[in-house]
Write a protein that binds this DNA or RNA. Sequence first.
DNA 1: ATTAGCACTCAAAACTAACGAGTGCTAACA
DNA 2: TGTTAGCACTCGTTAGTTTTGAGTGCTAAT
Lengths: 346, 346
Amino acid sequence: MAELDERKEKILYAIIQNYQETGEPVGSRTISKYLDVKLSPATIRNEMSDLEEMGYIVQPHTSAGRIPTDKGYRLYVDRMLSERNLPAVPTADTSFLIKRVDRVEELLMQMARLLASDTHYATMITGPRYKRTKLKFIQLSPMGDGKLLVVVVAEGNLVKNHIISIGEDISSEGILQLNLLLNNNLSGLTIDEITLDVISRMKAEDGEHAELINKVLDAVAESIRKEEKVPIYTSGAPNIFKYPELTGGDKASELISTLEEKEPLGLIVRSGEEEAGRHDIQVFIGDEVPVESMKDCSVVTATYELGNGVQGKIGIIGPKRMDYQKVVETLQRTMSQLDVIFQEEG
Amino acid sequence: MAELDERKEKILYAIIQNYQETGEPVGSRTISKYLDVKLSPATIRNEMSDLEEMGYIVQPHTSAGRIPTDKGYRLYVDRMLSERNLPAVPTADTSFLIKRVDRVEELLMQMARLLASDTHYATMITGPRYKRTKLKFIQLSPMGDGKLLVVVVAEGNLVKNHIISIGEDISSEGILQLNLLLNNNLSGLTIDEITLDVISRMKAEDGEHAELINKVLDAVAESIRKEEKVPIYTSGAPNIFKYPELTGGDKASELISTLEEKEPLGLIVRSGEEEAGRHDIQVFIGDEVPVESMKDCSVVTATYELGNGVQGKIGIIGPKRMDYQKVVETLQRTMSQLDVIFQEEG
DNA sequence: ATTAGCACTCAAAACTAACGAGTGCTAACA
DNA sequence: TGTTAGCACTCGTTAGTTTTGAGTGCTAAT
């Protein structure tokens, strides 16, 4: 396919930027005034005609201005991302905005809220992927009624509780022993590494009241493993009402629904999971978004880390004409902040 | 004020029910067909004219049918609530719909979701009011880096974690001692009862490494007490799109926003907190709702219990023409289910 | 007390006209 | 050859007009 000469590109960018601000199709006369080089509307029209033929822009109807196509945005975004050589964003220290919180989930939710009010788009954020983080320690406590409280603490000070029923109460020495056993064998492992193998080895190790131990171990292993469904938090959903192109017909309803249901968003998180490196930014434009009700949106995601290994994603959800530049910068800044916070938390 | 004779009341009810179904102003001819007694539209018109004068119904404009006023709904609802002699709703056991969960909050959120899809309205639910529940036990665990994990377990198997920083690590004997101290003194108390008095008594009791103890005690007390902001969960927000009268203009946006922000909903929860008894149902109609953006809505709340004392609220949020009958019944059924669940959990 | 009859009202729907932003094309121009 | 002025044309938007019909209030008859 023919490359775009510089002038065409400039015009395309002008269209994108104008449409971004106004949300209205932009015409030749507007661009003529907008560009630095002096060109008559007629000339612009010719160029636009070419751009349309090449598939970068379209007319919603005859006698309207042009708006960018997905392909147009794609070009724009790719250029931007490749030219982006870490512009050393001033990283304004907004960390004071984040109230000191003890649970990672709350911190992430605050992050989402902050991002939403910063960008005026909707945001999503997944909890950390628990499975790949290492266990720090496990703490069993008796609750009476044959129930045990299992507190699991993992790297990054992730804390999870589970209550398990084992049918009978255990003596406090028993609990002490179990705690020791669990921590000796499991701490330092990731959840992925807690295989049946490890469990049965532990069972063997403590031969005495084997039956009871087995029950407890199974329950503990089960309840640790079940943690795999990563929670997804969203914020700023009402921001979509700022963009008429997202609220026509039942669109608003559908969008808000998917944001509330959250499950469909998992598709976005999982998509491109393999190729994501530290702080990698991914941009989904229109039809590229793997969620049916979000085909009119663009989504920009970034991967955050917390200690070792891939951990979670943050996503910004807005109209296709979102301010990609600003969103990407904001996201990168946020990533660095999260790094700092997790560092001192860790 | 003059009482309503039976015929007027019947007509009012007919209007309410018709408007509930259609969302359109209802006219004399419709009611004439709807009523069991045979009356001509003209007669109905006369009665409606009276009803309007009395303030129970209004015309949105001349030459339109009538719609109920807040006052009209109020009458209807009050009658319904007073005539309600616990109709022994069949209490269909839907408890199998509730997946076994270990954290109360998750159970409540599931409840909210279930209610929303049952009723087609939006729902809200507050977490249990932690302050008035009794502590079962407290468990401190060392996390390294001068941090302690505090796990607080209260009645009803409510579990809360806090991570506190005390600047220095503590020996495991120290931890053991502290755990003993805390549990001996605090378990059985409610959070309200953990006064400075109790704390200083504890400080006195353990005179040895008093300094460190003080730090820990303060941190623990602080982090327990800070739990007071009750979380509010919502579900089914997109349901409001089913009711045009809630989505005109920016209304949809505002409503969705308040539902996402959640703080304003606290007003509803707190309003009438004093007069709420076990399973008490409260109905807010239109202007009675203490939230600005919800003046076009009605809210029905119920109080659920979990062990002793008032505990939390569930609310159904819908248009003023909601099906109060069904909502109240559903809510009562839900309350009994929660009772059962908490009973076996407790 | 009820009702048939009828004139009246007014929002919503359907139709029409005017407008104007924007285009594509052609012809003139540097 | 690339640029531009000029102009006819398109078509969505807006404003104004008419029609329709659901519903009322009033009056007079039952």
